[in-house]
Amino acid sequence: MEQGTVKWFNAEKGSGFIERENGDDVFVHFSAIQGDGFKSLDEGQAVTFDVEEGQRGPQAANVQKA
């Protein structure tokens, strides 16, 4: 798993970007967020995640709040 920080997340659209510790920013969709309840992330929040190849390039998967 990688570690990173939420660069921004739009709760209305359900997507945003995570700033990786090593590498380019990666797209995140709300469906990749693990946990119960409303799936959203806050700017500056620390997260851990896997990276998968999506239709438009790398994207975060199995996102967990650190």
Rank of each mutant, 00 (worst) to 15 (best):
M1K: 15
M1R: 15
M1L: 13
M1E: 10
M1G: 12
E2C: 15
E2S: 11
E2T: 09
E2G: 07
Q3D: 07
Q3G: 08
Q3I: 13
Q3T: 13
Q3E: 10
G4L: 00
G4Y: 00
G4S: 00
G4M: 00
G4A: 03
G4P: 00
G4N: 01
T5Q: 07
T5H: 12
T5F: 13
T5N: 08
V6N: 04
V6P: 03
V6R: 00
V6G: 03
V6D: 05
V6I: 09
K7W: 01
K7Q: 03
K7E: 04
W8N: 06
W8I: 04
W8S: 07
W8C: 13
W8V: 06
W8K: 06
F9M: 01
F9S: 04
F9G: 02
F9P: 04
F9E: 03
N10G: 03
N10T: 05
N10V: 03
N10Y: 03
N10A: 06
A11C: 14
A11K: 15
A11M: 09
A11W: 11
A11H: 13
A11D: 07
K13V: 10
K13H: 12
K13G: 06
K13A: 10
K13C: 14
K13P: 03
G14T: 03
G14W: 00
G14V: 01
G14L: 04
G14M: 01
G14E: 04
S15W: 15
S15Q: 15
S15R: 10
S15E: 12
S15L: 15
G16T: 01
G16S: 00
F17C: 11
F17N: 01
I18V: 02
I18K: 02
I18N: 03
I18C: 07
I18W: 01
I18D: 01
I18A: 01
I18F: 00
I18L: 09
E19N: 09
E19Q: 14
E19R: 15
E19C: 14
E19V: 14
R20Q: 07
R20V: 08
E21A: 13
E21F: 09
E21P: 12
E21D: 11
E21R: 09
N22I: 10
N22D: 10
N22H: 11
G23P: 01
G23T: 06
G23M: 08
D24L: 12
D24C: 14
D24A: 13
D25H: 11
D25G: 06
D25R: 09
D25I: 12
D25L: 15
D25W: 14
V26E: 01
V26Q: 02
V26G: 00
F27M: 02
F27E: 04
F27V: 04
V28G: 03
V28N: 01
V28L: 07
V28K: 01
V28T: 04
H29T: 03
H29A: 01
H29P: 03
H29I: 05
F30D: 03
F30P: 02
F30L: 05
F30N: 03
F30K: 05
S31A: 06
S31T: 12
S31D: 03
S31Y: 04
S31M: 05
S31C: 09
S31K: 07
S31Q: 07
S31L: 07
A32D: 08
A32K: 06
A32G: 08
A32L: 00
A32F: 03
A32Y: 03
A32Q: 08
I33S: 02
I33H: 01
Q34V: 14
Q34I: 14
Q34M: 13
Q34N: 11
Q34H: 10
Q34G: 08
G35E: 09
G35V: 09
G35D: 09
D36Y: 11
D36R: 08
D36P: 12
G37N: 05
G37Y: 06
G37F: 05
G37W: 06
G37L: 06
G37T: 06
G37K: 06
G37C: 09
G37Q: 05
F38T: 07
F38S: 05
F38Q: 06
F38L: 08
F38E: 07
K39M: 07
K39W: 06
K39F: 07
K39S: 06
K39Y: 05
S40R: 08
S40Y: 13
S40A: 08
S40K: 09
S40M: 09
S40W: 14
L41I: 05
L41G: 05
L41C: 05
L41Y: 01
L41K: 01
D42C: 15
D42L: 15
D42Y: 15
D42P: 07
D42K: 15
D42V: 15
D42H: 15
E43Q: 15
E43D: 10
G44E: 02
G44C: 10
G44P: 03
Q45V: 09
Q45N: 07
Q45L: 08
Q45Y: 04
A46K: 14
A46E: 10
A46D: 08
A46F: 13
A46Q: 12
V47S: 01
V47Y: 00
V47M: 01
V47F: 01
V47R: 00
T48Y: 12
T48I: 12
T48F: 13
T48S: 09
T48G: 04
T48Q: 10
F49W: 01
F49R: 00
F49V: 00
F49M: 03
F49C: 05
F49S: 01
F49A: 02
F49D: 02
F49Y: 06
F49G: 03
F49L: 04
D50V: 14
D50I: 14
D50A: 10
D50R: 14
D50E: 13
D50W: 14
D50G: 07
D50P: 00
V51M: 09
V51A: 00
V51C: 07
V51W: 09
E52C: 15
E52M: 14
E52Y: 13
E53V: 14
E53R: 09
E53P: 11
E53L: 13
G54C: 11
G54W: 05
G54I: 05
G54N: 07
G54A: 07
G54L: 06
Q55W: 13
Q55R: 15
Q55M: 12
Q55T: 14
Q55Y: 13
Q55G: 11
R56A: 09
R56G: 10
R56C: 15
R56M: 11
G57R: 04
G57T: 04
G57A: 05
P58L: 10
P58T: 09
P58M: 09
Q59W: 11
A60K: 01
A60F: 01
A60S: 02
A60R: 00
A60H: 00
A60P: 00
A60T: 05
A60I: 02
A60G: 03
A60W: 00
A61D: 04
A61H: 09
A61S: 10
A61C: 11
N62T: 03
N62W: 05
N62P: 00
V63T: 04
V63M: 00
V63C: 04
V63A: 02
V63I: 06
Q64L: 09
Q64N: 12
Q64S: 10
Q64T: 11
Q64G: 08
K65E: 08
K65F: 11
K65M: 11
K65G: 10
A66S: 12
A66P: 08
A66D: 10
A66F: 12
